[in-house]
Amino acid sequence: MLIKVKNNIDEIATICDEVKKFCAENNISEQKAYDIAVIIDELATNIISYAYDDAQEHTFSITLEKDSKQVRIHLVDDGVEFNPLQNGTPDLESSLDDRKIGGLGIFLVQQLSEKVNYAREEDQNKLDVLVNVSEQQEQDQAPESEQKDQGAEPKPEQNKDNKKDEKGE
């Protein structure tokens, strides 16, 4: 699926509707569809908010592809060079008083995905995100008693190692 998006924040809801449609057509579970929507929302919001330093209308693209195990999300914009993966991660251990507001968007993208790559090529920012959807599909097919045990608990520590390798490329 190819989605062409204008640099207008009101486009976010439309993008999420398209993503929902893609996930339904590809039998992706509700939880994974939610994760994919958040990933695309956060990255598209970043592009809309920061990629263009003029007041002109611009268009960028979001491509979604699914194979048997993964969904690949590809975002391409021709805005100013910006690698969102260079931002620091929020301090999850700080108290309510000390917790900084912001910095959560890219963190969520990294936690919800298998891999995130950034590249600057031909004056374009290219973000490539892989989301594993096979595990959830297996859970969906599992007997009810097993599903309860597995639940929809987030597993933030799962992919940290391979993500570190992707950062800063």
């Binding site: 939610y34 929020p90 251990e93 108290s95 969520l108 936690q111 919800l112 608990e153 987030p154």
Partner: peptide
Amino acid sequence: KIFAVFKMSGFDKI
């Protein structure tokens, strides 16, 4: 599904 995002962000602790 929303709680999962809150937990991931550490908001369940604060």
